[in-house]
Design a protein around this nucleic acid. Structure first.
Lengths: 188, 188
DNA sequence: AGCCACTATTGAACAGTGGTCAATTAATTT
DNA sequence: AAATTAATTGACCACTGTTCAATAGTGGCT
């Protein structure tokens, strides 16, 4: 009984919605194409008509989060607080983002999966570039390129470490603040 | 034709040797029990007689690396250089270890796999404790517990990031040194 | 030497994975 | 009404980790 009536045709969005729910709770590795299909009450083959493969589907899920991260950055930059405090908030904002969207973050900045990374392409780099430019400006060039890169890597370490335990950001808010303060001790 | 003659009985060490070669080149995820068995010219079932499951086998492979990391630390501590330089070398040594044994490091400090982490138990913590004590002593308590934790997490970020690309440590030696210097700017 | 318990190994089987594709049918175009 | 195209199915492939009944070599005991 192939092809359902047009009113109930499968769309990329429907697939992404089903995938998202599973993905947020279980992560890339532990969500299967068949589970998603089951959720949708379609055969798993149908998904492959709309997405080339698992990597493309989950990349689509994550793509928008690069924009989300950019937005978070922009919102902080527009605040009316002094630059030093802004820098602090940028660092904390990054960690909060990473730990609030752990499974997304994993794909954005941690995955080794070749196929997924083909889709990611330059997105992680672009995301970092935005972060770096912001910090460079806010510090009035007091932070060198090296410094900024070290800071980024250090934030990455924080997110990566605490993602191992299923911690929510709230549980490590204090730690995040302390980490940010440590990293900023080099300026000033 | 079960059970081979005693001269060619399978041992844990034989399995670990075969597994190690594959593991170092491909990582936990991409080495299968059947591949290991094929390498040994045994059926895959035989491995399960010697190891409870994949996690136990690969934990056995990684276990010794916690000691190796401790040793690296000790060797640096015994050097005849001033404490400040020792701290620097400890940080660099950690990054070098992580990037020289990337797939081991991944299991030691990065894996989310529940089964594997059951085997790891407190090993990563103990490893960190040793690191922290060393830094505390060398800095004559100038480095707070918080600082040391931030440093560790920051080193973790470095290893984790550069492990994504198949970089060897030599390729990022300069970066590692710069990262260490950045992290140590807060003291002094 | 014969028996027996034990030990190590096999390979079929299970339930799952990502992915492909011929067959089929609904929708659309001609 | 016929031909074409689009969307879906589900069997199939080649894998994965894991289990386990069946089997055969080993070593000890009588």
């Amino acid at each position: 009984m192939p092809r359902k009536s047009v009113q109930q045709e499968l769309t990329r969005d429907m697939i992404m919605d089903a995938a998202r729910t599973l993905f947020v709770n279980k992560g890339y590795q532990h969500v299967s194409m068949r589970q998603i299909a089951k959720e949708l009450e379609y055969s798993h083959g149908a998904i492959y008509y709309h997405f080339k493969n698992k990597a493309e589907l989950f990349y689509a899920l994550v793509e928008e989060h690069f924009k989300m991260l950019d937005q978070i950055l922009d919102e902080i930059l527009e605040k009316e607080i002094e630059p030093k405090e802004k820098i602090r908030e940028v660092l904390i904002g990054f960690m909060q983002f990473g730990l609030t969207h752990q499974n997304h973050y994993e794909i954005m900045f941690l995955t080794k999966d070749e196929e997924v990374r083909n889709f990611l392409s330059q997105s992680p780099n672009r995301s970092y570039e935005k972060f770096a430019r912001a910090l460079s400006l806010l510090s009035e060039r007091k932070l060198s390129i090296q410094d900024i890169w070290s800071i980024f890597i250090s934030l990455h370490g924080f997110v990566t470490h605490y993602s191992r335990h299923v911690t929510s950001y709230e549980d490590v808010q204090g730690m995040a603040a302390a980490h940010a303060d440590f990293l900023l001790r080099s300026i000033r």
